[in-house]
Design a binder for these strands. Structure first.
Lengths: 345, 345
DNA sequence: GTTAGCACTCCACAAAGCTGAGTGCTAACA
DNA sequence: TGTTAGCACTCAGCTTTGTGGAGTGCTAAC
């Protein structure tokens, strides 16, 4: 059942040619395109076999062949020689002031989309079970309190709390101390009713404030748990005729606009695989866990922002995407990202 | 040159009918559709006049008529009877925890898009020449300082500053006092070199920290000046055949994805006009200051988030959009928004 | 001023014809 | 036994032709 050398070469030629042109590939083309020195008739026989084995298919009789998903899969698994992509050093591209991770990731997405001409998506890593690191209450105005909550990973959340009483300086200080001593180092699951009750007692007449602040904390932490995804270059799909008819384009773009569905993709991809490959995975057509992507391929990679905290990057394009370039680009990017994140911490 | 009663009625009938069906309107249709009791032949004569006057046009000989931009304009200016839109009370729809204005506006955009089936955009109001209200430095870890900056409008910015020395508690306190006394109530233009120099002197060996913090402040304020725009329902354009061919759709969607261009639209629209109309404006085709919108219409409105601080809301759809519904929806929404913002402050 | 009637126009769609690319099969060749 | 040339066949895609219907403009009559 294994393919012999010659069949492999022919399959490879079919895929390569199809990736380039987007047109079904005929036997005569292969006969000239390869160094096999075989006549088109021979190629035809071989192609007929390949079709029977399910690697290629004719869109209609008397047309050339195009790869099936199975054909692409074989190609991706065994024949991709990733082209090293010399990408401008992204550090220069990235806005200096993009200290906020969201901005940085958004820019990475954009960079990828521009470089590849496909659609890119980047998920914000989420820190599971994040712990409270630091809380600071300050009086902004008479009846307004600003609560600043820092959680692990130096994620900062603010909440302005309106009061119907005004706090004394001492009281604010006291509340600060109470909150910090009670909550530092805890995550959401560890903050229970008993604890809250204790804190409220300490706060005396300001127990109400405690309630507000706890709400803010809960919100801050859970907000961070919402998997956020940044996308870019969604309209690039119009560059590929096979995706740009109204109904397909509409569905795809809607998915990218809403983003919810995309979390499935992100969650599906394997975790970091330790083999220095940045968990690069290729999904072809139906392999992706999303119906709308049945005519697309997707390449994903995993980046590590700090020990144990991962995010994903994905590139979505037509099945006939330039896998070699995409994989190359992603790898280059991952190396650069590693660099950036390492120097950051 | 003014149109008589009958011509107006016929024009109105043409527009109304075209808005509904999207097909060119013939004389026979009008003859039945209106209560004029005129034969199609008479209508034909009148339509011929209307065409000569530039209000309607035939896409080709022997087709019905469709309105020109001029025709739409007349219709919008004099014949729109806005339908009061009973929209579910948005307050119920809006996420309670959407205290952050960004989230709220994003949700408003979505609500609008869903309600109208057009594309919506909402600009975040920007507070010009915002003044610093409050600054708080806290030590998060040994060598990390958290700067929290509150500017007018209760916009809060955070910045984590890495230090190569560690500060004493007293020093942190002192820096806090220095920063607040010097900067409170100032806007960007008022923070000059002389001031900075003074502050650095006060900070002694930690003058470096002052520099970092000032950078953060500058960044925070200027960041807030970047006009941000939230969009929703961009893919709704696929519901309108006249916009959904690949090249038009691609251009439009790109504009909505990139958003930069959209600022032109927002900036162009008139300021609040005080006549309780929420500055509702209608742009038809080329009237919009954006080339890509030449086949679209746009309706914008202005909301006031607090005294003197405005933002815009816009709805973009095909020229044959349901103006009556859109204007109605926008007005209803504005009233609700006023309500929300008033109770907030 | 309004209307019926009629010839005319032109889009939209279907049917028919043509072309070129590509195939499968067969028979001959090395 | 594998390879090749030759040939009939297929079919998408394009152009051409034809047809029907919707709608118009014009004219003559009311």
């Amino acid at each position: 059942m294994d393919l012999d050398e010659r069949k492999l070469k022919i399959l490879q030629a079919v895929v390569r040619n199809y990736l380039e042109t987007g047109e079904p590939v005929g036997s005569r083309t292969i006969s000239k395109y390869t160094d096999l020195n075989l006549s088109s008739a021979t190629i035809r026989n071989e192609m007929s076999d390949l079709e029977e084995l399910g690697y290629i298919i004719q869109p209609h009789t008397s047309a050339g062949r195009i790869p099936t998903d199975k054909g692409y899969r074989l190609y991706v698994d065994h024949m991709v020689v990733e082209k090293i992509q010399e990408m401008e050093d992204i550090k220069n591209k990235l806005d200096k002031k993009a200290d906020r991770i969201e901005l940085l990731l958004q820019q990475v997405a954009k960079l990828l989309a521009v470089n590849t001409n496909y659609t890119s998506m980047v998920s914000k890593p989420h820190y599971r079970h994040k712990k409270v690191k630091f809380i600071q209450l300050s009086e902004v105005e008479e009846d307004q309190l600003l609560a600043v909550i820092v959680i692990e990973g130096n994620i900062v959340k603010n909440k302005i709390i309106g009061l119907n009483v005004s706090l004394t300086k001492e009281m604010t200080l006291k509340l600060n101390i109470v909150l910090n001593t009670f909550l530092q180092g805890l995550d959401l699951t560890e903050i229970n009713m008993a604890l809250i009750q204790q804190m409220k007692e300490q706060a005396g007449e300001y127990s109400e404030v405690i309630g507000c602040i706890l709400d803010a904390i809960a919100e801050a932490i859970s907000e961070e748990d919402n998997l956020e995804i940044y996308t870019s270059g969604a309209t690039n799909i119009f560059k590929y005729p096979e995706l740009s008819d109204a109904s397909k384009a509409s569905e795809l773009l809607y998915t990218f606009e809403e983003k919810e569905e995309l979390t499935k993709l992100i969650n599906d991809a394997n975790e970091w695989d330790d083999n220095q490959n940045h968990g690069i995975q290729v999904y072809i057509g139906d392999e992706a866990p999303l119906q709308v992507m049945k005519d697309c391929s997707m390449v994903t990679a995993t980046y590590e922002i700090e020990k144990g905290v991962y995010g994903k990057i994905g590139i979505v394009g037509p099945k006939r995407m330039d896998y070699e370039k995409v994989v190359g680009t992603l790898k280059t990017l991952m190396v650069q990202l590693d660099d950036i994140f390492k120097n950051k911490t």
